[in-house]
Simulated assay, not measured.
Amino acid sequence: MMLFTQTRGLPVITADAAEPLGRVESLTIDAHTASIACLRLSGAPKHAAVIAWHAVEAVGRDAVIVRSRAAAGPGQGGLPTHHEALGHRVLTELGTEHGTVKDVAFDHTSGHVHTLYTALGEISGDRLLGLGSYAVVVRTETA
């Protein structure tokens, strides 16, 4: 498992040419699949500022490796709109507040969101329903 906070700032390089593309600025979550949809980079050329998760070879403590510059290039249509998860409030579908997102744990291989860490405790990534500009929305916990 990796945390969003551990991933931010990591250099992103290509596997084929060891070419630096930029640094991880943020991760975009696809709430429908409860997984990482793409990386958003800072310091990257415009064509490589967004990299779809399927282009990622590996995520480690020191760097993120993508297959190639071509895999990181344009043509990333169909990605969800980016909304930052960290720092946003968490609400259940019934409107009950559950603090703010402090961190997100995800599988560094598949990109599956495992856990949302909030100010009021942990929430399984499987409960994720939506992510917008106002809040992260999760299913109410069943008894």
Rank of each mutant, 00 (worst) to 15 (best):
P74G: 09
S133I: 10
L39D: 02
V113L: 09
L94V: 12
I29P: 04
V90G: 07
A72T: 01
T28L: 07
H83Q: 03
P80G: 11
T14S: 08
E19L: 12
V113N: 02
V50Y: 06
G75R: 08
V138T: 09
T142E: 15
G87T: 06
G22M: 02
T118P: 05
G99P: 01
A143W: 13
V50E: 11
H114L: 14
A52H: 02
M2F: 11
S42D: 12
E141M: 04
I123A: 06
E122Q: 13
E141H: 07
G43H: 07
T142A: 15
V90R: 09
D16T: 09
H98C: 10
V136S: 07
A135P: 01
V50F: 03
A119G: 14
D107R: 05
I36W: 04
V113A: 06
L131M: 05
T14Q: 03
E93G: 09
D107H: 12
T7W: 04
S35T: 08
A49C: 06
L116Q: 01
P80T: 05
D107V: 02
L39V: 02
V113S: 01
A135C: 08
M2L: 09
A31M: 04
G43T: 03
H32C: 11
S35R: 15
R61P: 06
G22W: 01
G43M: 05
T140M: 11
D30T: 03
R61S: 13
I51Y: 05
G9M: 08
V64N: 03
Y117S: 04
R40E: 14
R8P: 00
T100Q: 10
R69A: 13
H47L: 12
A34S: 15
T81N: 11
E19Q: 12
T92G: 10
V59F: 04
G77R: 15
T33E: 13
V50S: 10
A18D: 13
M1L: 10
P11I: 08
H98T: 01
L86D: 07
D62A: 14
K102Y: 08
W53R: 00
R67A: 14
P74A: 14
M2T: 00
Y134V: 12
R69D: 00
M1R: 07
A48M: 10
A52S: 11
F106M: 02
L131R: 05
E25F: 08
G111Y: 01
A44Q: 02
H32Q: 15
R69W: 04
F4N: 03
L94S: 15
Q76Y: 09
V136H: 07
H98E: 12
M1Y: 08
G121S: 08
A63Q: 11
L129H: 06
E19T: 11
A48G: 01
A85H: 00
G43C: 06
V90A: 11
G111V: 05
P74K: 14
L10F: 06
G78W: 07
R89K: 14
G132Q: 08
T5C: 07
A49P: 00
